[in-house]
């Protein structure tokens, strides 16, 4: 075991994979940083420090600093992948899928299907998502629900440094396009990381708290809010299962349904607005496939149906909190 920050887990995993496989290529804005300046290459190494040292180690052909052109970045990742490479493209902020959506949605997600299964497109598109920095409406969004709705894409949302390493390796070695969503508020979080060359298969949720009364399902930053709620409730003798989905596509239906069968009570927590969200998706899953087990209406704790506001107080009000999760748990417990 080694202690490591989430951002270092991202960086070291890509770095090691680049050493292991010469087909792995990194591209994105400021992934080198300092190109064409007096400070020179590597003056920055990615605004999230997730590609520091790459350029010096692997050179400009494998570490491609791009102009501000998200559509071309994602499209080029698609082309690199079709032509046999394993691109890791970075979108500085997940919000910028807006600029590159055609390449994500109409191109890389569908190549394999449209081409009759005769190709693979192993492109990894990394992006920093999520609120908590008061970065307002265009730099704070959670976009997993949008990407999860697109057949052909795998969507990964690691919560811990250990999961970053296992899931990112899996992404880099798999043959499908992967949207790798890194929560901005988690970059600085430290955690124990197992040694060795392990992978974590997609579609396997992680149970981070165990209890028999209520099932809590979440991703990303919301997992720690569920855990905080669960820990507080545990002191009152209320037991919660907390499921960290880890990937939303594929989705670990079995883990959710197995837990709901025991608890009969489900609270889904989602950082995105509720309409057409991961929360409604999971609620639908439970009501369709675990109806007989449910003992209370499913509760969803989500963002409201609004863009993300700037002011501190407003962003706090916008985001699901541990208190809101606790209240939802009490609600399902108090049902009848």
């Amino acid at each position: 075991m080694t202690k490591m920050m989430y951002r270092d887990a991202v960086r070291s995993t890509i770095f090691e994979e680049m050493q292991r496989n010469e087909n792995v290529v990194v591209l994105g804005e400021d992934v080198v940083g300092g190109m064409g300046t007096a400070g020179g290459p590597e003056a920055i190494g990615g605004i999230w420090s997730t590609s520091t040292g790459f350029y010096d180690a692997f050179g400009p052909d494998r570490v491609i600093d791009t102009p501000i052109s998200e559509s071309a970045i994602v499209g080029a990742a698609g082309g690199l992948a079709l032509a046999g490479k394993r691109p890791v493209a970075e979108l500085m902020f997940a919000d910028f899928i807006g600029v590159s959506l055609d390449q994500i949605w109409n191109q890389i997600a569908k190549f394999r299907y449209m081409f009759g299964g005769k190709t693979t497109c192993p492109a990894v598109i990394r992006m920093a998502y999520g609120a908590g920095f008061n970065a307002a409406a265009q730099h704070s969004q959670s976009v997993h629900h949008i990407l999860t709705s697109m057949p052909g894409l795998k969507v990964v949302m690691p919560t811990t440094p250990a999961d970053v390493r296992g899931l990112l390796r899996e992404a880099l070695r798999g043959d499908d396009p992967v949207m790798f969503l890194e929560h901005k508020m988690l970059y600085g979080v430290e955690g124990e990381v197992p040694d060795g060359d392990y992978t974590i298969p997609f579609g396997h949720a992680k149970l981070t708290r165990a209890g028999e009364d209520v099932t809590l399902v979440a991703t990303g930053l919301m997992v720690s809010r569920c855990e905080a709620a669960a820990d507080a409730l545990a002191e009152e003798g209320i037991g919660c299962d907390v499921l960290d989905l880890r990937t939303t596509s594929p989705l670990d239906e079995e883990a959710i349904l197995d837990s709901v069968e025991v608890t009969g009570r489900l609270v889904v927590v989602d950082e995105a607005p509720q309409r057409c969200s991961l929360a409604t998706d999971i609620a639908a899953l439970a009501s369709e496939k675990a109806f007989a087990s449910l003992r209370a209406p499913i509760q969803m704790v989500t963002a409201p149906h609004s863009p993300i506001p700037f002011a501190l107080e407003l962003e706090q009000a916008y985001l699901p909190s541990a208190d809101k999760v606790q209240a939802a748990v009490r609600k399902v417990l108090d049902w009848r």
């Binding site: 307002a136 265009q138 700037f310 002011a311």
Partner: peptide
Amino acid sequence: GSREGLCNGKGGSMHIADVDKGMLGANGIV
């Protein structure tokens, strides 16, 4: 981030706008 701000604290530095003045907005998307 005040409620009395030009955009009621909803926009912040990157989204200041005043359409009456012909200022159609700062923009967070390059």
